[in-house]
């Protein structure tokens, strides 16, 4: 009887030590920590990105804290200072600036903290462990082809850009123009930034329409700006004349396509990106070092032809 008890006790201790060595605890016994640094929480899309990353990190057994950079690179640098000082184990990072954020990631790397970029890119091959990025270019190539066909290869259009320091802005613009610029009868009459902001896009579109009354379409670098541009078009009484194209797959834009307000958008998958980033960070912490420096995530063109599949109720 004593022997059985002793065997059970030994097995119990063995399991305890194995579990102890495999769980996500730091040397002093505290749970390991992941920092989720988000460019701005003033946009629902990024709220989803940050919360999904934190939720997945918690499911994997980590303490997760979200930091809001408020689209301010100085604020972002402060967050990195605190994260390094507090000894976080990994950073799930949505940068504010493709160039300006590189130094922050390098500082974290020097401090032994791995960074995993989500959705927004930094211009570096090796500062971050890996970067999970929506394939914005390919999405806008598909959107551009749809745009050309909807416009019958001719007409005047406006482009409203996102943040000019963000690579996503230019990858979207470049994908779109790689198609549309091949058709000389499609003329861009204005190109202006509205910082991915709905209200700014409305103001920008109102101003552009005053100077250019003959506009047939507007391509916006995200859906928030597309909805702002649509409001401006609607207020000018031109909702039937000006076709509005967006990017993101935001709920109101998808519903707008179903209602005939928006022509098309491109759906991104922030939950997939953020959850996968947390999983990759967990793999890194547990010893995996085999990562591709960039991992594009496919995006889907949403048009009236397939919008039913992507409506929230479906």
């Amino acid at each position: 009887m004593k022997k059985i008890f002793l065997i059970k006790l030994m097995l119990g201790l063995l399991i305890f030590f194995i579990a102890g060595s495999c769980n996500n605890k730091s040397k002093n016994g505290d749970l390991k920590k992941m920092a989720v640094v988000i460019s701005t929480l003033n946009n629902p899309w990024f709220v989803v990105l940050g919360e999904s990353a934190a939720e997945r990190a918690q499911e994997l057994g980590y303490v997760a804290h979200i930091f809001d950079s408020q689209n301010n690179s100085a604020k972002e640098a402060e967050h990195f200072d605190n994260i390094i000082a507090m000894g976080y184990d990994a950073i799930l990072f949505n940068p504010t600036d493709a160039d300006g954020s590189v130094l922050n990631v390098k500082r974290a790397k020097e401090a032994g903290i791995p960074t995993f970029c989500m959705d927004r890119e930094i211009n570096s091959r090796d500062a971050a462990v890996t970067q999970l990025l929506s394939d914005n270019f390919t999405g806008c190539v598909k959107l551009g082809q749809y745009f050309v066909r909807q416009m019958n290869k001719k007409g005047n259009y406006v482009e409203i850009l996102g943040l000019v320091g963000d690579n996503n802005t230019w990858n979207r613009s470049s994908g779109f123009h790689s198609v549309v610029d091949e058709f000389p009868d499609l003329v861009m009459v204005a190109q202006q930034s509205a910082d991915f902001d709905r209200n700014k896009a409305m103001d920008v579109m109102e101003t552009i329409m005053q100077a250019n009354p003959d506009i047939d379409a507007v391509f916006c670098g995200n859906d928030a700006m597309a909805m702002g541009a649509y409001q401006a078009v609607l207020a000018a009484g031109k909702a039937d004349e000006v076709k509005v194209f967006g990017f993101d797959g935001a709920r109101d834009a998808v519903e707008g396509i179903a209602d005939g307000k928006i022509e098309a958008t491109v759906m991104q998958f922030p939950v997939l990106m953020s959850r996968t980033s947390a999983e990759l960070a967990d793999q890194y912490i547990n010893g995996n070092r085999d990562f591709s420096s960039k991992t594009p995530v496919e995006v889907i063109l949403i048009t009236p032809e397939n919008v039913k599949e992507y409506l929230p109720e479906n």
């Binding site: 890119e121 270019f137 390919t138 990858n171 470049s174 420096s293 960039k294």
Partner: peptide, 14 residues
């Protein structure tokens, strides 16, 4: 893709 500094360069190749 790992040869490229950023997606912009990679996409410009296409």
């Amino acid at each position: 893709i790992n040869e490229f500094l950023n997606m912009t360069d990679f996409n410009n190749v296409s």
